[in-house]
């Protein structure tokens, strides 16, 4: 939504665009435009539009990949409502999102402010961004090894400190926090860079005025930086929360949903229902529910954090 709005704003700004209040675009280029747009349009219809409609349709059917989908109305949804595994997956996912987003946002904010104030070099930013460019699967493997119970370096360190070893991926209580940590590690630099870009957009003269008034760095941060940064922070939160809800790769290659059900996040559950149990209708209904949850979460964040209003004007 926000991106659409940004696009609209960007469209209004470049000088060569026709003046506001212009008439409808003339259709002089219609034929060439159709040619230019044709491949993308095909891709849009075949891989976005039709699948979206088909996904909604499938959620009202029973379908095991063989034969035709059989219409069963709302049965999948009523079943899901009573499905303990679904509620578990929702709870586990929520636990993951809270831990992941909580730590990630605070660390990224600190890093962004530090990059902005003391280390403006591209090298520092580059190094911190690096984990984000590496595949989830790769990152998961490296940490799976470093956090190994027997000979992982982290447990060696814990041992050396005289503390009891931790079964990071094997302990039900530790599994989700561990996976959340791994993904905080991967995303903190990227998130910091997004916030950093927002910090750069705050005009320098505002800080100069604050400095003249003798405001402390602490006060400047809370009274000036944070309020002006709010729209960016909200945007970052919306995007990262939505991404966080769809955690899959890390879980799939480390715990596979275990131990017991401790890390069976919602996308893992959808995957297992669809491909391990060939229950495509049920899995589609789960996806619809996830879609709705994401929509509500994004809407609430925008509404309550007032992400679409800027204090900078």
């Amino acid at each position: 939504m926000t991106i659409v709005r940004q696009a609209a704003r960007a469209e209004a700004s470049p000088a060569p665009a026709p003046a506001p209040g212009r008439t409808r675009p003339r259709s002089k280029d219609l034929r060439i435009a159709l040619l230019f747009i044709a491949p993308a349009f095909l891709g849009f219809v075949a891989f976005y539009l039709v699948p979206t409609i088909r996904g909604i349709y499938l959620s009202f059917t029973r379908y095991n990949l063989f034969g035709d989908p059989k219409w069963i109305g709302l049965k999948n949804y009523t079943d899901i409502f009573k499905d303990k595994l679904f509620w578990n997956s929702l709870w586990v996912t929520l636990e993951y999102v809270v831990l992941n987003i909580g730590f990630q946002t605070v660390i990224a904010l600190v890093l962004a402010v530090l990059m902005h104030r003391v280390a403006k070099s591209t090298l520092v930013r580059g190094v911190l961004l690096l984990p984000y460019l590496i595949a989830n699967v790769v990152v998961a493997m490296v940490w799976f090894w470093m956090l190994d119970y027997q000979i992982g370096i982290v447990n060696q360190l814990i041992d050396w400190l005289g503390l009891p070893r931790i079964a990071f991926f094997g302990d039900q209580a530790w599994a989700i926090p561990t996976i959340a940590f791994v993904n905080v590690w991967r995303h903190m630099g990227y998130t910091a860079l997004l916030i950093f870009a927002g910090l750069q957009a705050i005009p320098g003269h505002i800080y100069e005025v604050a400095a003249l008034d003798g405001a402390s760095a602490w006060k400047t941060f809370w009274r000036i930086t944070m309020p002006l940064l709010r729209p960016v922070l909200v945007l970052v939160m919306v995007v990262t929360v939505i991404g966080s809800f769809q955690v899959f790769d890390t879980v799939a290659v480390t715990t596979g949903g275990g131990p017991i059900n401790a890390t069976r996040v919602i996308q893992m559950y959808i995957y297992q229902r669809a491909f391990a149990e060939s229950d495509f209708g049920y899995a589609s209904a789960l996806s619809v529910i996830l879609f709705i949850i994401l929509g509500i979460v994004a809407f609430l964040q925008m509404k309550f954090l007032r992400g679409n209003e800027s204090d900078l004007s």
Binding site: V50, P51, T52, R54, F245, A274, L290
Partner: peptide
């Protein structure tokens, strides 16, 4: 379509 989560289109695709 940016708003549609990848998992949602993955099954029909």
């Amino acid at each position: 379509t940016l708003l549609v989560p990848p998992i949602f289109t993955a099954l029909p695709n």
